[in-house]
Design a binder for these strands. Structure first.
Lengths: 327, 327
DNA sequence: ATCAAAGTTGTGAGCGCTAACAATTGCATC
DNA sequence: GATGCAATTGTTAGCGCTCACAACTTTGAT
């Protein structure tokens, strides 16, 4: 910086002012400094800057199950929004979710001195751990909408589930089962709630609730059972991967989709349109989710202290796995 | 740090020594200092440390198409290995791959002062841009094996393709087509090479080469054509998603898999086992890939200057989409 | 007891930057 | 030309840490 100052014939402080867009720099000087900067290929030292400003310009993103469709896309959205806002993005992926691993990752971020943290760990227990942290550093948790102490953004999973179930109801289905995600996932729980609610609103008794684990393998296994007992005419499956397994099981046992049983998935992965048959499912906008998270976090970084929530609306994508119930 | 020193009754320098595991600290003092640290909940300031050591303890990871199965898993592997090695991981995901966006992201990392960079951008043009950077900061590129100037780790895609094709050859297939990825992806090119080589080694004329775009949609579209002309008895598809589309197309047009045409995919996504029928495919170990990348990078950070390469071997997973050729 | 060598601890400087304040300049006004 | 005020630029200190070196303490061989 001293070098730049010398070349431009000004003091280092003036260079600093140019770099930080301070108003009171004459345009001639500013120009000269900028030229010197490009000439020397000067790059401001982040460490020194952080040391004095006490800001690292870094946002930590904590996630689990990052290989899954939802979490990985949320990360992508968050990353993009953060970088657009001029922040660096530090990532920690959890192999295993326990209070300890979460605390470790948080310590990791605190060591790094991140300005804020976004958490995408869709297990309810997470939030208890996070409440302590949020006092120390601004924090936004995906899925924490409704929590009194945590800011958060969520796709309205409950509404998504309602969309799916209402679609089936409109088609005349009365016995609508649900193959859910693990009940200790927030998203899974919300989808179960939505399914129950929609049925309750229609005055219809819910069909079987089967707890799955998100995997295609589990969808297949449970699909075989459902195909055998035929207790439902429609199945709402909590994600597309399980739906894939279900479709395969139905196919093997000669259950026709949608003629015999209708199936609705959740996520709208790109592949869903190429399942056999193409899957009716619920789409979520992860990019928007990421933007919302960063938006909330930036509010906090600007000094906001209120707990805020943002909700992103999902939408139903109708393809070929749903049809009017057979009479 | 001064506070800790006071509580422990030593100088700040001794605290620093304890923190950095310097050998010449008596165990009594060390203990006292450590106690003071936990007592005060002291956390060393990374910015100040970086300022003097000129190390940020941060590795930048640049990736594109991060939503794809391969890239996202590579990121996961890299992230894990880096964090295990005590580094922070800064991520930049490219929406669009051009020399400019790559340079932008590199500038982003340089601004941040990362100690090293891992690049997962599977387009050959990338490497030309990177060669300039690698002089400034240690850099490892996934897929750059064979490049004179860049260190890199790769899954041996060519070998993976050979595995697939040789499997088909053993089953007696003679007309083996290939639905590839976009030719400007390194991985796609390597798989094409492997396919060609294996056939050449067997003295067999290659079947049709169709360039795809990795998507299930494209697999479907091309699958319809292949089903119509029946010019091949086996199809090697460059990833599982396209294979999914192919399977659906074949299904629709009544082409039986594997009886009429055998299909082999690539990636071994978890869902592949639940396609209809379960897909024979080639598995890659992304975790190991990530570890290798970080390994190479750490070598560089320790002062190594030689261009090194690491290769991870893929393996064939045989399921139900391949069978002996119909006579 | 004496000395050198090794082990242990303390002192001062400085990494590159920004904040606060001080100094200078330009310009309109009296 | 003197005065005041704003706009612009420069000076100094210090953020929290590690490095180099100085100083002190212990140990063990003479």
């Amino acid at each position: 910086m001293e070098d730049v100052a010398r070349v431009a014939g000004v003091s280092h402080q003036t260079v600093s002012r140019v770099l930080n867009n301070h108003p009171n720099v004459s345009s001639k000087t500013r120009e000269r400094v900028e030229q010197a900067i490009t000439e020397l290929g000067y790059r401001r030292n982040t460490a020194a800057r952080s040391l004095v400003t006490r800001r690292s310009q870094t946002i930590g993103v904590l996630g689990s199950e990052m290989a899954q469709y939802g979490p990985s896309h949320t990360l992508l959205g968050v990353q993009q929004a953060a970088r657009d806002a001029g922040y660096f993005v530090s990532v920690a992926a959890l192999r295993e979710v326990t209070p300890e691993t979460i605390k470790d990752a948080m310590a990791h971020f605190m060591d790094q001195g991140v300005d804020g943290i976004v958490v995408t760990v869709p297990h309810p227990g997470t939030f208890d751990v996070l409440r302590d942290i949020t006092a120390q550093v601004p924090l936004v948790a995906v899925g924490s909408v409704g929590d009194e102490h945590l800011s958060g953004a969520t796709v309205d999973q409950r509404q998504g589930a309602r969309l799916a179930v209402e679609h089936l109801l409109e088609l005349g289905h009365q016995r609508i089962g649900h193959l859910s995600g693990p009940a200790d996932w927030i998203d899974a729980a919300a989808r179960i709630d939505g399914w129950r609610e929609a049925l309750a609103d229609a005055g219809i008794h819910p069909g079987a609730l089967i707890e799955g684990d998100w995997s295609a393998e589990c969808g297949y296994r449970e699909g075989l059972k459902i195909a055998a007992d035929r207790s439902v005419t429609a199945l709402f499956v909590a994600n597309d991967q399980m739906a894939l397994g279900v479709l395969r099981a139905f196919h093997e046992l000669g259950v026709r989709v949608p003629e015999d049983i209708s199936v609705v998935g959740f996520d709208d992965q790109p592949e869903a349109a190429y399942f056999i048959p193409p899957l009716t499912t619920v789409a979520q906008d992860f990019e928007e989710l990421g933007q919302r998270c960063i938006g909330l976090l930036l509010d906090r970084l600007d000094g906001g202290t209120t707990v805020e929530a943002a909700t992103v609306m999902p939408r139903l994508v109708v393809r070929s796995t749903t049809a009017t119930v057979a009479s």
